[in-house]
């Protein structure tokens, strides 16, 4: 028995490496490390400036411990109201406009030219970050909530279009065939074959989207697109840290409420 086992050569195994050549593997690792070292050095970290900044940081932190809700009460209130209005308008219009693009961007239910066109729209909409979009729209249409609403509509279309069209592409092909085989028209295929299969996901995404839009509405105000962010920007610009702190607290509370409500609704849906 034993002698037999020894006669058989030990066969080993190890996981195949991502890059076969050992030389190439080590060269790439080395180059990446060198790059990171130089990259960090290129930032020219100025210790003096940081130390001076620390004073102001303390000042700010101290102010934040005494938030002042009252001094600019009406501005904060109006800012919040504007953000909420923007959220409602941008979310509902965004979802509405997203529907045709979403259907077009699902390969299994749309002809190829339409598919490429809608995918193209989604790629463009998604590649532009909200802040960049907001700056563009502020330049085009001036300061204020209109630019903000447009920004978030575009962003909603990109978000819902991308995620939901992928969900549509994953629904059962045979079910679609079955509905087609009955002689149903394309709109009937959508409402009878597609919608029931993605409706709960659609509603879930829409609620998440509303939550997301509110958070975005606080950011894009910083570049002049209206909402509570604009009030925050003004407060920061005046070094009025007590008011800024109050605004930040209000934003945090509203985001928390939004998150809680949206997750509560989504839990009910599934």
């Amino acid at each position: 028995m034993n002698s037999e086992n020894q006669a058989v050569e030990e066969r080993t195994w190890s996981k195949p490496k991502l890059i076969d050549s050992a030389f190439l593997r080590w060269t790439i690792t080395f180059l990446v490390i060198i790059y990171i070292i130089f990259a960090v050095r290129s930032f020219e970290i100025n210790v003096d400036r940081i130390i001076r900044g620390l004073d102001r940081a303390w000042e700010m932190l101290y102010a934040f411990l005494q938030p002042d809700f009252l001094a600019r009460q009406s501005h904060i209130f109006q800012g919040v109201l504007e953000s909420i209005t923007m959220t409602v308008v941008a979310t509902s219009l965004g979802i509405l406009f997203a529907i045709p693009v979403t259907l077009g961007a699902a390969k299994n239910i749309s002809p190829l030219p339409v598919y490429y066109f809608c995918r193209g729209i989604l790629v463009v909409f998604r590649s532009l970050h909200v802040v960049i979009l907001a700056i563009l729209f502020v330049i085009m249409f001036g300061f204020g909530p209109f630019a903000g609403v447009l920004t978030m509509i575009i962003n909603s279309i990109g978000f819902i279009g991308k995620l939901l069209s992928e969900d549509i592409e994953n629904i059962s092909d045979e079910t679609l065939e079955a509905i087609r085989a009955t002689g149903a028209s394309w709109p009937q295929l959508i409402i009878y074959g597609v919608w029931p299969q993605v409706s709960s996901r659609f509603i879930g995404l829409s609620i998440y989207r509303a939550d997301m839009t509110f958070r975005q509405s606080t950011v894009i105000g910083l570049v002049g697109a209206g909402g509570i962010g604009a009030v925050l920007d003004t407060a920061m610009g005046r070094y009025d840290f007590n008011t800024a702190a109050a605004i930040l607290i209000v934003i945090i509370i509203l985001v928390l409420i939004g998150e809680y409500v949206s997750s509560a609704i989504r839990r009910r849906l599934t």
Partner: peptide, 15 residues
Amino acid sequence: RKNIGMIFQEYALVE
């Protein structure tokens, strides 16, 4: 297609 019925392997119902 109205005159042609079809039955599928995985039933192909709208679940």
